[in-house]
Write a protein that binds this DNA or RNA. Sequence first.
RNA 1: GCCACCGUAGCUCAGUGGUAGAGCACACCCUUGGUAAGGGUGAGGUCGCGGGUUCAAGCCCCGCUGGUGGCUCCA
Length: 716
Amino acid sequence: MSLTITLPDGSKKSFPGPVSGSEVAQSIGQRLAKDALGIRVDGQLRDLTARIDRDAAVSIVTYKKRDGSVDPDALFLMRHSAAHVMAEAIQRIVPGAQLVYGPPLEDKFYYDIRFPDDRHLRESDFAAIEAEIAGILGENRAFTRYEEARDACLARLKREGNKYKLDNAERALAADPDAKLSFYATGEPGRNWEDLCRGPHVPSTGRIGAVKILSLASSYWHGDENSDRLTRVYGTAFGSQAELDAYIRQREEAAARDHRVIGARLRLFHIDETVGQGLILWTPAGSIVRKELQSFISAELRKQGYTEVFTPHIGRLELYKTSGHFPYYKDKQFTPFLEREDLDRLSSSGCTCAEMVNRVEGVSARLAAGINERTGTQTITPDRILPDDQLLGGFMLRPMNCPHHAKIFGSAPHSYRDMPVRLAEFGTVYRWELSGELNGMTRVRGFTQDDAHLFCTEDQVPAEIQGCLSLVKTVFATLGIKDFRVRVGLRDPDSDKYTGKRESWDKAEQACRDAARSLGVPFSEEPGEAAFYGPKIDFVVKDVIGREWQLGTVQVDYNMADRFDLSYTGPDNRPHRPVVIHRAPFGSMERFCGVLIEHFAGAFPTWLAPEQVRVLPISEKTNEYARTVEDALRAAGVRVSTDLGNDRIQGKIKAATDWKIPYLLIVGPRDAEGRAVSLRVRGVEKDAGSMPLDQFVDRIGREIAERRAELSVLTQ
RNA sequence: GCCACCGUAGCUCAGUGGUAGAGCACACCCUUGGUAAGGGUGAGGUCGCGGGUUCAAGCCCCGCUGGUGGCUCCA
């Protein structure tokens, strides 16, 4: 039976019967056959040796594509193969190390390994492992795939005593009972190292160009912290040592753009261990950036009809019991603080700690009944209900702003005519993040959300979601942020854990989709990712190291108004439940500014720059004129300073350049004479010519007022 | 929290058991120089904290603390 192979250029080749990928490559050309690393059969990546037994579209995977770029599939094959080689090397060095799972990633690979209790891996082992790897690559052993019948395979894995691999096989079979379990030998089956693996791989170890071990980490089996702890060994592989070196260099350069590095150098923020981990001290320079951003956002909010509120950073425990934040999310919160009198009374009566915790976390029968009745479900279970005289009060640092805002809404009557009510606050919240999760400004324990709660009628939900997204669009456009993605979290259609009516959800989900589409950036719909109380839209950006951070979110909430018994009067003169939309489109000022520092690499547009202009007198002879220039700019509201030091002008320029100041005004006798300034623009390594002082003041004023992204004084 | 690595001047870093160093930044002096570092002098340190080993510890050992990377993209 003959079969037809369609190649990427559309040409077809006929073969008398099943052929391997390498035979197809061979039939096209010697050179291609030599360079081939694998094949794609109808888009699916396979071994070069895989047999094709039906008509298919086939393309040969080589390291470099026609256009000279590296084929990601080739890197995938290479890294997956490198993971095997690394695992073999590690097992030689540490006998008894059990392999768990070793996939290729976007730019590296890892292998999760369970090491014997008495022999952990250290970075000092890397050199020996890399030497073993080099040896294996030099032997150029073929990756040899063979399949084994289900029962034989399971029996063999059991015999080998590696529960992790057995689990992998069982999971694969659970997903597809007809799946063929395959092994890959790095060389000859039975003689060389083997691993249960789905493949595919490069033809032989010699085809892996260069491998480097990057780092060690701890991980959990199946990502479950209650499960076995594993050691994760990260590495990467490239086609050549030069590319690997370039990758390492690029990682180092990215590290230099890290907001923590730039933030320290430009004195934008400070974290002090005595103040506490994950708590940001905004220094004067960073505070300017933040304040300017907040002013910008506030101005946009006013245009959209928001009203601003201020609320305190703490609230009574009862508030969070009502909202449901406590104790359900207690692991993510700072411990509540109790009143001194209560503590004294309890300690003198011999109260145990466990008992105290119970009394703090319990609720009164009255509160439980009220909430259960309003929400229509038993959200407060009987085991948490305690008699009033046993309950302990106290306060909590707030983990969210919504309870305070709900209370503001509830503090006055509302008519449908006044809806929606949009309460905005740059609200500071506190969350107990694991110490290992903390990261500069992007993961902290105290942060200020650009928060607002929109209390609206059900019909108003789509327009309000759209309003939130148009705000995001405006702000991102002004800042030139284009590289972000949007996640639309929808409900899992098979689950009934969600509150709110099905029709409401349908409408809100559609509104989220429509709004996301209107942004004109990629967005993904993710069923099952909605909160139990409503669908949501998240905005996600990448940092310089390639890590993703969620910035803002827009969430529809069908639950909160119930819990706080909020209502407005409808046209029928009866009370109605509002729908609440939580929205913090930029997430937190901390994370957002951290991302912005990296986005601009510290070179902020003029309106955001802590120091917008520095005046540099050529010598002391023009110090006085420099003061005149400084005064004129300051009077116009420009953030300006003057360098009166006794450096030469070259030195002053170097110093100012390090601070990434948008405009430098060099003033010497020539300028003083004609009330002019000699301009130097950030990023332009030369004298930008002279300009009348008044014109400069005028133009920079316009640039700042319009929040221009570009330094436009020369081009206006 | 868990695993690995790291913590020396404000910053970047050197210092393999024997009297704490460099560059930049800072202060002062000389220099008054037209577009990315003129020259000199000086000040600045509980070497993250606590314990131990040693005649002697920044260095070796233990504990703590803080930072960094990572903690599934299901064979």
